[in-house]
């Protein structure tokens, strides 16, 4: 554990909580891509199956459980509780365009051809592109509310901090995981355009 890893995790947690609270407080999920949220729920489910097989630390287990719980709670709010406010017409990105190629890649490029390892690899690759339906939706509607941009900022910041974490771990622990690093770089790059808008326009984004 280093400072980048910890702040990265907390930034990720902040993003998830911000989104959940936004939907809960406004009683609306307008402008939020349900598809990105389904993909994130799938990411956490396939990655954290190791909750059943190995114990790393109380911190690790707690965070995993919180991430999974929040991901499903968000999907529930969007598709069940506040379904009437869900903007399905603008959330038109096809999930299979991401899930199928990512699944194929996970089978081809992985550390070990075993069930759990392939699901872990799948989750890493899928996470790197899971935000695309959300970004696509913003480009389609041409705007994003302030609180949605805060959500995206923290989500992007989390991955950027993880990149520093991996540099740290490489120098001080000799640890590096090429799959996580490359996918993490792709994921961070996807947010660059958004970061630029967030910094220059500050609040709600209008394209």
């Amino acid at each position: 554990m280093n400072i980048f890893r910890l702040t990265g995790d907390l930034s990720h947690l902040a993003a998830i909580i911000i989104l959940l609270l936004k939907i809960w407080k406004t009683r609306s999920c307008a402008g939020i891509s349900g598809k990105s949220q389904i993909l994130f729920a799938l990411v956490f489910t396939t990655r954290y199956l190791d909750l059943l097989t190995s114990f790393i630390s109380l911190y690790n287990t707690t965070m995993k459980v919180i991430y999974i719980g929040c991901a499903y709670a968000t999907v529930y709010l969007i598709y069940m509780k506040f379904k009437a406010t869900y903007d399905g017409n603008h959330d038109s990105f096809r999930m299979e365009f991401l899930v199928v190629p990512v699944g194929g890649l996970a089978c081809l490029v992985n550390h070990d051809f075993s069930f759990l390892e392939i699901l872990w690899t799948f989750s890493i690759y899928l996470e790197s592109v899971a935000i695309l339906p959300q970004l696509f939706m913003i480009s389609k509607t041409g705007e994003a509310e302030t609180i949605t941009t805060h959500y995206l900022f923290f989500l992007g910041l989390y991955r950027a901090l993880y990149l520093f974490n991996w540099i740290w771990r490489f120098y001080f622990e000799g640890f590096f995981d090429m799959i996580a690093i490359v996918a993490g770089m792709v994921q961070t790059i996807l947010y660059c355009d958004f970061f630029y808008l967030y910094v220059t326009k500050g609040q709600g984004i209008s394209l």
Partner: peptide, 10 residues
């Protein structure tokens, strides 16, 4: 083949 160390990152 990967060693048996579990993935420790989130």
């Amino acid at each position: 083949k990967r060693d048996e160390t579990p993935h420790d990152e989130l």
